[in-house]
């Protein structure tokens, strides 16, 4: 049965070669540490899915934001779960991306030929933090409001353009409806777009170049690759 469906699609889409190239390729023997990236990826998918679900009820205005979030949390079936997943997922994603990065540093995986992967990774980290910062305001509760007040005020210390930056970030002198909508716009449109772009390149490169092999302790020896020592 499954084979039949498989065949039916294969005849029409010809996806098997792609599957083969992607999935049935060989990669070096890797350790558990290599799962950190895909774990981050999973949480990212989780963020996108739950984030989109949240937008279904969420309204970005000072009048409604809090009420709609509270509605999601308390009245919609599994709303607490979806919000909870998004909330904790944000922290998890920061942690996992951080650990993933540490893994990459430990393995020296940012070296040739994976420099671009590393750069896009850094971009991903920045985008993730930006997600966290903009998302924090959205529930429009006390912690959201005041943490963002203080957070945006930090911009003021930039010499010369500081005050302007502050007004830019807040969309005015004070935190207001304008701040909320622009944070929302960032969180829902701008940052996801950047995220897609960066993760697209990141993943493409991971497949294209191939995942690095765990470095061998013997590498320092002059003979180099000829001396094949089992890791």
């Amino acid at each position: 049965m499954i084979e039949k469906i498989d065949l039916w699609f294969e005849e029409r889409m010809g996806w098997r070669p792609i599957w083969k190239a992607l999935a049935l390729r060989n990669i070096p023997k890797v350790t558990w540490a290599y799962t950190l990236g895909s774990a981050t990826l999973l949480v990212m998918v989780n963020q996108i899915l739950t984030g989109i679900l949240l937008t279904i009820y969420y309204v970005p205005s000072p009048q409604d934001a809090y009420n709609s979030v509270s509605f999601i949390t308390n009245e919609i079936t599994a709303g607490w779960l979806i919000r909870g997943l998004h909330h904790w997922g944000a922290s998890a994603m920061v942690i996992l991306a951080g650990l993933h990065m540490i893994r990459v540093v430990v393995h020296g995986a940012y070296k040739f030929p994976r420099e671009v992967t590393w750069f896009t990774g850094l971009g991903l980290l920045a985008v993730t933090m930006a997600f966290g910062f903009t998302g924090y305001l959205l529930p429009w509760d006390q912690k959201a409001y005041w943490a963002t007040t203080v957070g945006t005020r930090m911009l003021e210390v930039v010499p010369v353009i500081g005050p302007w930056l502050l007004r830019f970030a807040r969309g005015g002198e004070e935190l207001s409806a304008v701040t909320l909508t622009r944070f929302y716009g960032m969180h829902i449109w701008v940052l996801p777009a950047l995220l897609m772009l960066l993760i697209g390149i990141h993943m493409f490169l991971v497949v294209r170049i191939g995942i690095s092999a765990p470095p061998k302790a013997s590498e320092t020896e002059e003979e180099g690759p000829e001396l094949e020592v089992e890791a």
């Binding site: 999973l42 989780n46 899915l49 679900l53 279904i56 009245e75 919609i76 079936t77 599994a78 709303g79 779960l81 979806i82």
Partner: peptide, 17 residues
Amino acid sequence: GIGALMGIPTVAYLVSP
């Protein structure tokens, strides 16, 4: 399993109202 863990709440969430 992952699909179910994410999918079932999703459906519940969407049909709730």
